[in-house]
Design a binder for these strands. Sequence first.
DNA 1: CGGACAGTTGAGGCCTATCAATGGTGGTGG
DNA 2: CCACCACCATTGATAGGCCTCAACTGTCCG
Lengths: 233, 233
Amino acid sequence: MTRSPVTLKVLESLEPQAITLGADRDEVIVARGNRAMYCFLVVMGCVRAVKLMNDGRRQICEFLLPGDLFGWDALDEYDFTAEAVTPLTLRRYIHGDLYALADRDRTFACWLRELMVEKLQAGREHTVLLGRQAAAERVSSFLREMAHRMNSDTRTLIELPMGRADIADYLGLTIETVCRRLTQLRRDGTISIDRANVVIRNPSALGVAGCVIQHRSRVLLPFNFNAAAEGHG
Amino acid sequence: MTRSPVTLKVLESLEPQAITLGADRDEVIVARGNRAMYCFLVVMGCVRAVKLMNDGRRQICEFLLPGDLFGWDALDEYDFTAEAVTPLTLRRYIHGDLYALADRDRTFACWLRELMVEKLQAGREHTVLLGRQAAAERVSSFLREMAHRMNSDTRTLIELPMGRADIADYLGLTIETVCRRLTQLRRDGTISIDRANVVIRNPSALGVAGCVIQHRSRVLLPFNFNAAAEGHG
DNA sequence: CGGACAGTTGAGGCCTATCAATGGTGGTGG
DNA sequence: CCACCACCATTGATAGGCCTCAACTGTCCG
């Protein structure tokens, strides 16, 4: 899952204090309740933002993909746990530095505000999905969201980074229900699917009532980490 | 139900540009898709933040009570519709003024950031409720939330400003299911309820499974890509 | 080859939605 | 003052969708 090394430098002035990290699959990056000292940019791989109930029920609030920032939306402690869905490369920044930068750089403050607002709006779309959509609609919405975020071209292959259990916990369903809905979409000819590989064959059939979750405020990667990241795998 | 003095003080320098508005029950304050020119402080009454699907399904993302601000979390257009749950008194501010103030007043910028983060975190809690809690837990959570927000003293009378339909659309349930769960809580002796009036008789019985604080399994070791990163600095 | 793991499929039960009827309350006008 | 109506809340009966439990398949890796 490599992305074309795009050039933007929103976080450029934070780079001197930043370090690059690797993480294995299922590794915990930050845990709920930990003091929020850092925030992270996903360079390569996929992260899940998890909330756990004390009887073991799990809800994934968000998937973070390359270019996404997480951990900044904490006042004192993280309110969710972030885990590696896939092997990761992360760029780690000092949490306080982000806000210090916002204080002195008006452009950055504006960018940060936009990021927050977009997250709030994406959260509301997810709320509608969980509160008012049936299982089939949730799975369709999920596929559209991932197609949009990972590739932006329909009718091309998407390689889902997460397993069925993660999809289920993101959509408020069970693994079995996710499987059955995916199978139905395959039988309808809407998609082709083999494990993690999905091809959307009939995009209009995935269109459901409601709006797409939009993630516009992506951090464009400041550097090309791809070469270094391959050494970690 | 009086205006929160904290919020008032923070917005003090915006008061000259502000006006006070009234609204009747069910009146639309701002509509999804409208240009976001204003934001509002609830002075008296209750507002619902609504998202509608094009087949009529409705999800309430949030209830706004006196002291709450809404409409600021928009970039260009409002992404939800705000309607009066009860007759309202609102204080209306210019949307752009809020961010102009944030630009020149560091304290206000900090306050606004905290507000955003709290909204994000509240949204995630709501996500867990919708994704992973059963109907009885949702209703219990709702009562605890309202008790906390409206009164903060348990064992005292709460007068719910919204009807069963609004509660249902907030909790991702139907009116009938909300009724049945409330009736069950009354029969269990957990609450007394008569229409909008609720008394919590057994607060501990309303306690539901919360979220776990998770501890990090192992320390993340820095990946030594620093040299590569600094090379581009 | 076997064991672990992820994904798929099937059978059955439970919970919530749906449809329907009743009860209660507030407002209006006779 | 009361009859009437509209609206909201409650309760009941039934159906359906998703969850649970279980078995099976396929893949990866030792």
